[in-house]
């Protein structure tokens, strides 16, 4: 690991000031991704600004009409919060399925949203797009875990965020703050970005900005996440699906279906949501939603299996939401 300067300011204003030195200054949250990435030489910040001492970024506030979650709230604290557990079983599943008490204790809400992809080309020094000598390696390479949607550009990786799909489906808003000190609200639907060039950011967070909190409408909905994975211990899933709807006399209203780990961003499956809208969520409508979710999928040479998994994940998430 390259050496760096370290600061742990007590308040957000100081953190933002310390980040003003530009791209070489990085935010350190739980460190589960960043510290490893630094050891591997994928990133080499000149300065780390740790947010761990900033109390205003921690905790879950359930007093308003949104549930406001500080960016430095640990994933363990998030999943064990009573209001969160009651309102958002889709989030609790997404956290618990991470499969490691250690990661869940160390990892934070803000850090989860700002993770780098797990793509092994990226992790082994071939960049976000997996390039060697100007040639992309992923289309004909080991793309088993790569994207089956949104992969027509150079980005073939999948978004690593565990919370992303659930937050998008639940209609959350992510708030960031930068040098102007004005809070900026970003709908979760617009938070994740698919880069078109290697310099493009992966999120809507600008250089020098800090994710301060996430707000989710405190509305009773039926919601669930279903994950399909190779192993039950610490790992990233192959495919996830989150289904959210409002129960309107036994029929689904305002249905939303979001897939995870199938695209460079959480993938909004509008067709699947339409298949549930206005219907009782049962075996038949859930099956239709699954089929609709994978229409237009563009699997790569070795990940066609993920299309079937996505179909099943949507169906099972819908049935789990109906039970929630």
């Amino acid at each position: 690991m390259k050496s760096f300067e370290y600061a742990a300011p007590q308040n957000l204003d100081d953190a933002i000031a310390l980040l003003a030195s530009g791209e070489a200054a990085f935010v350190l949250a739980g460190g589960t991704d960043l510290v490893t990435s630094m050891k591997q030489g994928i990133v080499s910040p000149a300065r780390l600004v740790s947010l761990k001492a900033i109390e205003e970024l921690k905790g879950v506030d359930t007093s308003g009409d949104t549930v406001k979650i500080g960016a430095m709230t640990s994933l363990a604290e998030l999943a064990s919060n009573e209001s969160v557990a009651k309102l958002y079983p889709s989030i609790v599943t997404a956290v618990n399925k991470i499969g490691s008490a250690q990661i869940v204790n160390m990892g934070t809400v803000g850090g989860d949203l700002c993770q780098y992809p797990r793509c092994w080309y990226y992790r082994n020094g071939f960049g976000l797009f997996g390039m060697e000598n100007g040639q992309p390696l992923i289309p004909d390479g080991e793309n088993k875990y790569h994207a089956i949607f949104g992969n027509d550009g150079p980005a073939k990786f999948v978004c690593a965020s565990s919370l992303g799909p659930a937050l998008v489906a639940l209609g959350a808003t992510v708030t960031v703050r930068g040098a102007d000190n004005q809070p900026r609200d970003i709908p979760a639907t617009e938070f994740f970005k698919t880069p078109q060039s290697p310099e493009d950011p992966l999120t809507a967070v600008a250089v020098g900005e800090v994710v301060t909190h996430v707000a989710i409408p405190a509305k009773a909905t039926k919601n669930a996440t279903y994950e399909i994975r190779e192993r039950e211990g610490l790992d990233w899933p192959l495919v996830t699906a989150t289904v959210v709807y409002t129960d309107n006399g036994g029929k689904a209203q305002d249905a939303r279906v979001v897939l995870g780990h199938v695209a460079p961003v959480p993938w909004i499956a509008t067709g699947a949501a339409a298949a549930l809208e206005g219907k009782a969520v049962d075996e038949s409508s859930a099956l239709e939603a699954g089929a609709a979710a994978v229409e237009g999928a563009t699997p790569l040479s070795k990940n066609g299996f993920k299309v079937q998994l996505a179909k099943v994940a949507v169906k099972r998430a819908a049935l789990a939401a109906a039970q929630a």
Binding site: Y6, T32, V35, T36, Q102, N105, M106
Partner: peptide, 24 residues
């Protein structure tokens, strides 16, 4: 931060000591 062989307790909670800076 994958295998757990470095696990220590921080205020009673298990964490990966390989992924936590000593200063933190």
């Amino acid at each position: 931060g994958t295998c757990g062989a470095c696990t220590v307790l921080l205020d009673g909670k298990p964490v990966y000591s390989c992924t936590l800076l000593a200063v933190e």
